[in-house]
Design a binder for these strands. Structure first.
Length: 429
RNA sequence: GUGGAUGUAGCUCAGUUGGUUAGAGCACCGGUUUGUGGUUCCGGGGGUCGCGGGUUCGAAUCCCGUCUUCCACCCCA
């Protein structure tokens, strides 16, 4: 019995932040709250899709689709569908394409002219795993579908930054670039291709193949190996409108004191982007240093058969965000009250009180193994209870219990028959 | 897919040129001490030494294979 390679369990007593369920939920809740504060609403799509969603969405030539997808077919399908039509499923490698698929399928674009959506869930890519790169990983992403208003770009970038800052991640950098419209992309490609041909002798055979197949990828990944001067910059080839947009965006970002660097070599490994592309990296992560990445994708909805709908979005890797937080055991589970009985004969009354408090939504633990008083208070301490309720037979006859604050050591006597509110109020202090 | 490391108790690791019932600390369980806890002391459970072959009288230790995890390439979140 073994977990799938590159997949991970998240456990109740995990030793690091990313494999402990308590931390995981605390963090994802915080991220959700940020999305919510920008009024993005959650969309939950299935983990599996037909392969066409990603082939037309991301592009067949991308690494993600051509070699990293978990694809499978089911023999059972052959009986249900016509024999010459083979259904191919895949586990989703990213979130944008499914969201767009769902948006069109459910006519969300007709219900609202602008949709502000976010998703959070597992993604799957068949890659060699290493630090910050797993075959099953989680992304939280935002998609703003239905407008090319440049202020939304500001909003999206600010949202992305807010996610990072909320987790108190320190060493991060935003890089932005514009890759223009489709035409300018073609121009950039041919410019890089021409540049590469001119310098063919000084480029490795392997890199030259990348160059021929995907010039943009070469620009993004391989060019830093060489000390070329006059490398084509995307910014020199983009159309005038895109150029103006980009200039305006940088001005708006300066106005709100958003910290960024312009990287004219930055492109993305997914085909659907145009104009703005961006990426946030962390210097604390090693080789897999991208915390989040995204950009504008004005033509994707049309590719899926929807009406023209300009859009922008990004996705953040949750495991990487947690790694970049660079702190251990910051989040720890605790309980409100640990109920301790001095004499075993009061155990049933103690349990009754525990159940009563739990019904009020209070987090209560009690040892039901009839352990000694000393043992119980040690357990209370170990489970990080804020307070203990100490029950003894003498007090119980008068409906009294002792409430002890485990931090200060202070004790109060409380009447549980007519002053239960006192206990509850204690939690707010 | 390429290269390099790793794998001994739940965790972090010892284990000497192969030699008899494989160890420590932490954690866990029980007891003890501390006025009702975070301390002290004592005891206990728990390991097919990643897995499979091979060499040997004898393998955690040597050889081969395989798997896992990690690091880098690559790719990306």
């Amino acid at each position: 019995m073994k977990i799938v390679k590159g997949f991970r369990d998240i456990l109740p007593y995990g030793s690091t932040n990313s494999d402990s369920s308590y931390t995981w939920t605390s963090i994802t809740n915080q991220l959700r709250d940020v999305m919510s504060s920008y009024n993005f609403q959650e969309i939950i799509t299935p983990v599996a899709e037909y392969d066409s969603t990603f082939k037309t969405g991301i592009g067949e030539d991308t690494d993600i689709v051509s070699k990293e997808m978990y694809e499978f077919t089911l023999d059972k399908d052959n009986k249900e569908t016509s024999k010459n039509q083979i259904l191919k499923y895949c586990l989703r490698p990213e979130g944008t394409a499914p969201v767009v698929r769902s948006l069109i399928e459910n006519s969300l674009d007709k219900i609202r002219s602008v949709n502000k959506l976010y998703y959070l869930g597992p993604m799957f890519r068949y890659e060699r795993s290493q630090k910050g790169r797993y075959r099953m990983f989680h992304q939280i992403g935002a998609e703003l579908i239905g407008s090319n208003e440049i202020l939304y770009e500001v909003e999206i970038l600010s949202l992305a930054e807010k996610l990072i800052k909320t987790l108190e991640i320190k060493n991060f950098t935003f890089q932005i670039n514009s890759i223009g419209n489709k035409e300018s992309l073609d121009n950039i490609r041919s410019a890089i291709l021409a540049f590469g041909k001119k310098n063919k002798n000084s480029i490795d055979e392997k890199d030259y193949k990348i160059l021929e197949k995907n010039p943009l990828r070469f620009l993004d990944k391989a060019i830093h190996k060489y000390a070329f001067k006059d490398i084509p910059k995307t910014i020199d080839y983009i159309d005038k409108e895109s150029m103006n947009r980009f200039k305006l965006l940088t001005k708006l970002l300066d106005d709100i004191k958003f910290n960024y660097k312009i990287n004219n070599q930055l492109v993305r490994g997914i085909d659907y982007y145009n104009d703005l592309v961006f990426e946030a990296t962390s210097s604390d992560l090693g080789a897999q240093d991208a915390l989040l990445a995204g950009g504008r994708y004005d033509t994707l909805i049309q590719k899926f058969g929807g009406k023209s709908n300009e859009s922008i979005g990004f996705a953040a890797g949750i495991e990487r965000l947690i790694l970049a937080m660079n702190r251990k055991n910051k989040y720890e589970s605790s309980i409100d009250f640990f109920i301790i009985y001095k004499e075993e004969e009061t155990i049933e009354e103690s349990l009754k009180l525990a159940l009563k408090l739990r019904n009020l939504g209070i987090k209560v633990e009690i040892d039901l193994e009839r352990r000694s008083f000393t043992k119980q208070i040690k357990l209370a301490d170990k489970s990080r209870s804020k307070k203990t309720i100490i029950i003894s037979k003498n007090n119980l006859d008068k409906a009294l219990v002792v409430v002890k604050d485990m931090n200060s050591g202070e004790e109060d006597s409380v009447n549980i028959e007519n002053n239960l509110e006192f206990l509850i109020n204690q939690l707010k202090v």
